[in-house]
Design a protein around this nucleic acid. Sequence first.
DNA 1: TGTCGATACGTGTATACGCACGTACCGGAA
DNA 2: TTCCGGTACGTGCGTATACACGTATCGACA
Lengths: 149, 149
Amino acid sequence: MKRKRARKIATECLGAATQRAGRAVTAHYDRAFADLGLTSTQFTTLTAVRGIGSPSVNALAESVRTDRTTLTRNLSLMVRNGWVKKATAPSDRRVQTVELTDAGAALLDLALPRWRAAQAEARTALGKINPTKFRDLLGRLERLADARP
Amino acid sequence: MKRKRARKIATECLGAATQRAGRAVTAHYDRAFADLGLTSTQFTTLTAVRGIGSPSVNALAESVRTDRTTLTRNLSLMVRNGWVKKATAPSDRRVQTVELTDAGAALLDLALPRWRAAQAEARTALGKINPTKFRDLLGRLERLADARP
DNA sequence: TGTCGATACGTGTATACGCACGTACCGGAA
DNA sequence: TTCCGGTACGTGCGTATACACGTATCGACA
């Protein structure tokens, strides 16, 4: 029966399940940062900028594993908000370095406790599985995009 | 040291990890359907429509667990492509029922083998963990969005 | 029968995402 | 020095996502 099979696919599809979880988790972290005017994507980007320290756009994109052009647009909002600034690298004028502003660093410090709380809730929701193990599973799926035509 | 901690957050954050995996998995399934002019989201929606059978917009949105307004816009593309059509329910003129067209059903049949192949690859990527168990973990995260203010 | 809260849906606006394409710049070879 | 392939980045376009708000309709109650 076709209908039965279709319903089975809906619950079985690893892609759909991962996306649904992704949307829910995004909303969860977004709520944690909402009153700071910060999104989870922006938080991730800020931590990457601070972690690397004035990366190029390409290096930052690779770090957060998004398309370079997506990052460009996300950064433009963050520049507009005064959290980061771009500068042309003196050694190679093709390169734009991304730097955290004081306001960005302050915001990140405000956001960190919220992140810890949201992260703790997510860990609790996962139950007794080791979070590291779970991230390993996600990492396996992530590599589906790598070695492909 | 702040930089060290920031780098730790980037790898540790369950939200970021889930989103990265979601993007990669989406790309994986999208590739499988690409030459049909179909996206993974649209495939999921089509299977839900067939599984339920002429659902209302609200029922369909709940089934695929996206915001109702998001579904409205996604459906408009699928209506434009001739895969589904909307009709006002006779019993309640507020309700729009979503119906699969013949073209939509035919497309879905073409897409099914591609889905099975992509699904098999995803399962392989996961390694030896039980896919049902993995989906259960994703479901736990999904419920983070539920019982909240 | 008219009113009014509740329900079902669409639209305006904004972020997030990525492919295709174009531009500026770099460095080595002719 | 000029040319040319490669590199770093931005923009145009289209899809996906969701909140705030508005509109049409329904059903129950005065």
